[in-house]
Design a protein around this nucleic acid. Structure first.
Lengths: 210, 210
DNA sequence: TCGTTGCTGTAGTGCTCGTTCCAATTGGAA
DNA sequence: TTCCAATTGGAACGAGCACTACAGCAACGA
């Protein structure tokens, strides 16, 4: 292994081990879902014994929740509405959609695991599911805020409808790409989606004014 | 193997038992996914011992595949494009979307389980996943056929893009409803979706002609 | 030098899983 | 009646699961 014989790490491995466990867990959980993620598999992939995993995390539930939390933070950073200097509202929202698409292509594990957790209806809901629904809510509110910023005329009902539709389209296009692979140009589809949502939004705003 | 087959009485329970097993399995698998569906749970729910399940189905994989197959048939029957007497193309496609939405509200287990299977990436792919991807492909082709019927001018590239987008929207809206519950009016959202897709389609057709 | 803290390594625990084996039961065919 | 095939019932299997108990060891503060 990569254990430096000179100048041993300060303390043991603490922080780094935690990261290694999370790295292994996000990969396995992103592929196999909650039940499919065994502690033994995570242990094998990160090279640390099960007892280390249980030293860092309370139980499997806690581990999965931490996986969701960490990968959401990474992912959220990639999703920002470009500033006004980036052009017209349509151009800005299209650029944002394009960024979301790229981040989903680069790191699909987060959303794949999240959707699997969200779809399951187990009697005792895992904490990971709750965490995902929470961070997903944050993302939704961000989308709603973007809609309000770009089209201040819209009433809250329209904002809610558009937000639901926008997020649903993102989920659905992601799923399509997961299923059909590279046959789906996710960036192009997201840009089309942004365009259609923008169109629907302006029409709703016009109808309200008219 | 020529058997008289004269309105024979059910020997033991044969066909009915098979249905009972499938009924129990579709419910559990729709809630808990592949790994979460244990033979013991199915056995408990349908009241038949595990050995009966293994008499009717080769193994767990075979059972899940049969679940997908049967529920797809039920579901597909609900999805037809209304005939020309139903009005304009937009009205017809909107009505079709509305029907799909209703069928998903009534029987969400099929798509929920299918999406869970589709998202998982296990080393040895379960047959249920293959079956779902196959029946999903059938549904997609049906959508493509509807697009071609209503707008014969479109080239195949546009048809493919529109089909992908239409199916993705359906998946995404379904997921939204699974997550947010009755807060999402699935029928209304599907009708909005149909409208936007129709709009995009006519614009694509016009751009080609122009 | 000593004790404490932080983490790793080994070797389990009891439980549930998918699956199998085989002995009953049951109703029609001979 | 006897036989057979279609089912059911029950018990057991080895494997893998989440999780734990506990000893060992490296680095610090004292």
């Amino acid at each position: 292994m990569t254990r430096p014989q000179t100048a041993r790490k300060k303390r043991a491995n603490g922080v780094e081990s935690r990261q290694r466990i999370l790295d292994a867990a996000v990969e396995i959980a992103g592929e196999r879902g909650y039940e499919g993620t065994s502690i033994a598999a995570v242990s094998a992939k990160c090279g640390l014994p099960a007892s280390s995993i249980y030293w860092h995390f309370k139980d499997k539930d806690d581990l999965i929740a931490a996986v969701i939390e960490r990968s959401f933070e990474t992912w959220l950073a990639a999703v920002e509405l470009p500033g006004e200097e980036a052009g017209t509202p349509l151009e800005r929202v299209t650029a944002m959609a394009s960024n979301v698409a790229k981040s989903l292509v680069d790191a699909p594990d987060f959303l794949r695991l999240g959707l699997m957790l969200a779809l399951e209806r187990r009697p005792a809901e895992p904490r990971g599911r709750t965490v995902f629904l929470h961070v997903r809510d944050i993302a939704s509110q961000k989308v709603a805020e973007v809609v309000r910023t770009l089209l201040p005329d819209l009433d809250e009902d329209a904002v809610r409808t558009l937000t639901t539709y926008a997020v649903a389209g993102a989920d659905g296009l992601f799923v399509q790409r997961e299923i059909n692979g590279d046959g789906v140009d996710l960036v192009a589809m997201f840009e089309l989606h942004a365009q259609l949502v923008h169109e629907a939004a302006t029409r709703m705003a016009a109808r309200k004014r008219g």
